[in-house]
């Protein structure tokens, strides 16, 4: 027997009451309501949900996660898009899986969840993602990850990335296990503020990435290829990378060039994998003095960089910088510019 359907003219309610109906609905039902029409979507948007974190991962499947923090706990929406026709360049994901969950604490969130699974023929992946971001009032994705590593995705991944990331702002991008020809084009397409690089690209790609104007750039895979020339080309403000190939002489050359105003935009560099360095060789021929105080700097993506027992050098225009070996960062060499002094 068909279920009895009760009809109710929801949109004819006073605005306050309509908002109250939507606010008392379960989150999954509100999401379904937002897909009814443009008007219903705008009503959901007017609830002014404010997400506290959002991540978008270009993995297999593509995954969007939005979390909300409310006085009574956490709510999380998770959307998975699966393209069965990946090779066919069809921008519409065949399957859409939506999961909503809540819990009093972040770790308890998964205990109470609801899931819906749809076959999609109407909307592209980008349209679906922008819909969810729009109703959650998200203007910037906090974290995105690109991690395809299946050979057969290589040819079309840029096509999908272009459709998905169109018009989106991404704060932090993490690339892992990516080995595709369009890799650099994808990074260039997303243009995050912060770029974390978990693989070892060629020297050519390293250079192309370092000349981007990232707020923070990290490339410290053990086999990452970098050179002093590459570093001198960098336009990023805060850099953390492996310097296994760097000699003390290279560091010395870098400091001398910095004094002559090379890399003026640089604020902090953390050279990892830099054990057994000899500070006397690094500072050879450079006027410097021993730091007499402890200095702390808040750099993006680091909790803070504490510089102590280092050496102070001065640029030709008087700007100070310190170079030190930090045991807290696994004997990394930290070069910090103190523009405020």
């Amino acid at each position: 027997m068909e279920n009895v359907v009760f009809l109710f003219p929801l949109l004819l309610l006073p605005v306050n009451a309509l908002k109250n109906v939507l606010r008392t609905m379960e989150m999954m039902d509100v999401l379904m309501f937002s897909f009814c029409s443009k008007v219903s979507k705008n009503h959901v948007k007017s609830l002014k949900w404010k997400a506290d974190f959002c991540s978008l991962h270009l993995l297999d499947p593509i995954e969007l996660k939005i979390s909300f923090r409310f006085p009574r706990g956490y709510n999380i929406i998770q959307i998975e898009l699966t393209y069965f026709s990946f090779l066919l360049r069809c921008p519409k994901p065949t399957e859409v899986r939506i999961n909503t969950s809540h819990g009093a604490t972040f770790s308890a969130v998964q205990k109470d969840s609801e899931e819906k699974h749809f076959y999609n023929r109407k909307r592209t992946g980008g349209e679906l993602i922008r819909h969810f971001l729009d109703i959650s009032n998200i203007s910037e994705i906090n974290r995105s990850q690109v991690g395809f590593h299946h050979d057969h995705y290589d040819e079309n991944i840029y096509y999908y990335a272009r459709e998905i990331y169109k018009g989106l702002k991404v704060k932090k991008l993490l690339c892992e296990n990516v080995n595709i020809p369009d890799y650099y084009r994808i990074v260039n397409l997303i243009l995050p503020k912060v770029f974390l690089h978990g693989i070892s690209p060629s020297l050519e790609i390293s250079r192309k990435l370092l000349i981007q104007n990232f707020e923070y750039f990290r490339m410290e895979h053990e086999t990452s290829v970098t050179s002093l020339d590459t570093l001198l080309m960098a336009n990023c403000r805060n850099v953390r990378f492996s310097c296994r190939q760097f000699t003390d002489k290279d560091f010395n050359r870098f400091l001398k060039l910095w004094i002559k105003k090379a890399n003026t935009q640089l604020e902090t560099i953390l050279f990892s994998n830099s054990k057994d360095r000899v500070m006397e060789d690094i500072l050879k021929g450079i006027p410097s003095r021993r730091m007499d105080e402890r200095r702390e700097k808040i750099a993006p993506m680091w909790k803070s960089v504490v510089v102590r027992d280092g050496y102070v050098i001065n640029r030709s225009d008087g700007i100070e910088a310190t170079i030190s070996i930090e045991t807290e960062h696994n004997d990394a060499i930290v070069f910090a510019v103190w523009n405020q002094f």
Partner: peptide
Amino acid sequence: LLNVSCKKVANMAQGKTPAQLRRVYLLPSD
């Protein structure tokens, strides 16, 4: 009273798809 009456209306949406919601709430399409 507004809370409980709105909750009753909200409960009509439970487990429904967008197409079913359009019907239940008499929502016009775009």
